[in-house]
C-alpha cells in the first residue's frame, strides 16, 4: 500500500489542509508564497482578493489542476502527491465549478451530467439518469434536460455546471468565480443554488467578489494578495473590523463598486 490515507475519517478531521503552499510558474513568477488554509467539514470558506492575487491558482491546486513546488495539501485525508492514481481519486471527490461554465457543448444537458458518473464511477446509466433528473429539478431546470448548453442562458448553464459536479457526489465543492461571467440579473439564481447547497451542509470553497454572499453564507473569509494570505476571519469581523491595512484598502475598493 503506497497511498497515504488518514487512519480514520472522523468529522473532526479537516476536509482540506493546505500548509505553506508555494508555486512558481515556468516563467519564474512566484504565484503562491506559502499559503496555509484549513477547511473543516461543512464549512463555507470564501476567498477574496484583487485579480492576480493567486486566489484562483490556490483553489485549483486543491484538485491538482495546478501543481505546486513546496508545501503540502491534504484533501479529505488524501495527501496530494505526484501519484497519478491519487490525483484521479481526489478529482472524483472534489467538484469544481468554473467561471466560464465549461459545459460540454456537444452533449445534451442530461448527457453532461451522466458522462462522468457512468464512465468514472461505472454506475448503471438508468440509475445515474434518474439522479441527474432529480439534481436538475433541484437547481430549477428540470425541463431543459434534452437541450444543448448553447440553447441555455448563462445562469442556466452555470446551474447545469453545478448539477454536473453534484452528480459525481463530491465531498467538497470548489467554485472559481462562478458568477463573474454572468449578466447581473442571472447572478442571483446561481447564488440561490449555492446558498441551498451550503444549507445542506456541503463543504465549499468559493472564490468570488460577491460581498453579500460572503456575508450571509461564509463561515470564514480569506483575503489573498500577491500570492499570500493577508487575513482570515469570520465574515462579520472581516467586513466590519479587518485587522490588516491591506484588507481595509481592498474592502474600500470593493465596497464602492459593490455596496
Amino acid at each position: 500500500m503506497t497511498s497515504s490515507v488518514s487512519p480514520a475519517r472522523t468529522d473532526a478531521a479537516p476536509m482540506i489542509e493546505a500548509c505553506a503552499v508555494q508555486k512558481w510558474y515556468p516563467n519564474g513568477f512566484h504565484a503562491l508564497r506559502g499559503v496555509d488554509l484549513t477547511v473543516q467539514r461543512g464549512e463555507v470558506v470564501v476567498i477574496m482578493g484583487p485579480s492576480g492575487s493567486g486566489k484562483s491558482t490556490f483553489l485549483r491546486t486543491f484538485n491538482a489542476l495546478e501543481d505546486f513546488q513546496q508545501g503540502s495539501i491534504c484533501v479529505d485525508g488524501i495527501v496530494l502527491s505526484d501519484d497519478l492514481r491519487q490525483i484521479d481519486a481526489i478529482r472524483q471527490e472534489v467538484g469544481m465549478v468554473f467561471q466560464q461554465f465549461n459545459l460540454f457543448p456537444h452533449l445534451t444537458v442530461l448527457e453532461n451530467l451522466t458522462l462522468a458518473p457512468v464512465l468514472v464511477r461505472k454506475r448503471p446509466k438508468a440509475e445515474v439518469e434518474q439522479q441527474a433528473r432529480a439534481l436538475l429539478r433541484r437547481v430549477g431546470i428540470a425541463e431543459q434536460s434534452d437541450k444543448y448548453p448553447g440553447q441555455l442562458s448563462g445562469g442556466q448553464q452555470q446551474r447545469v455546471a453545478i448539477a454536473r459536479s453534484l452528480c459525481m457526489e463530491p465531498r467538497i465543492m470548489l467554485f472559481d468565480e462562478p458568477t463573474s461571467a454572468l449578466d447581473p440579473e442571472m447572478v442571483r439564481e446561481v447564488l440561490e443554488v449555492m446558498r441551498g447547497l451550503a444549507a445542506d451542509g456541503m463543504t465549499m470553497v468559493v472564490v468570488t467578489h460577491e460581498v453579500h454572499f460572503a456575508r450571509e453564507v461564509a463561515t470564514r473569509v480569506v483575503l489573498m494578495a500577491d500570492g499570500e494570505k493577508v487575513e482570515e476571519a469570520p465574515p462579520e469581523q472581516f467586513f466590519t473590523n479587518p485587522t490588516q491595512e491591506r484588507s481595509k484598502r481592498f474592502l474600500d475598493q470593493i465596497l464602492i463598486s459593490n455596496p
Binding site: S4, S72, S81, D83
Partner: peptide, 15 residues
C-alpha cells in the same frame, strides 16, 4: 484511497 489503514497524514511514502 479513503478506506483502510495507512500511514498517518503528512508521511508521504514514495510514489
Amino acid at each position: 484511497p479513503s478506506v483502510g489503514p495507512s500511514p498517518a497524514p503528512g508521511l508521504v511514502t514514495p510514489v
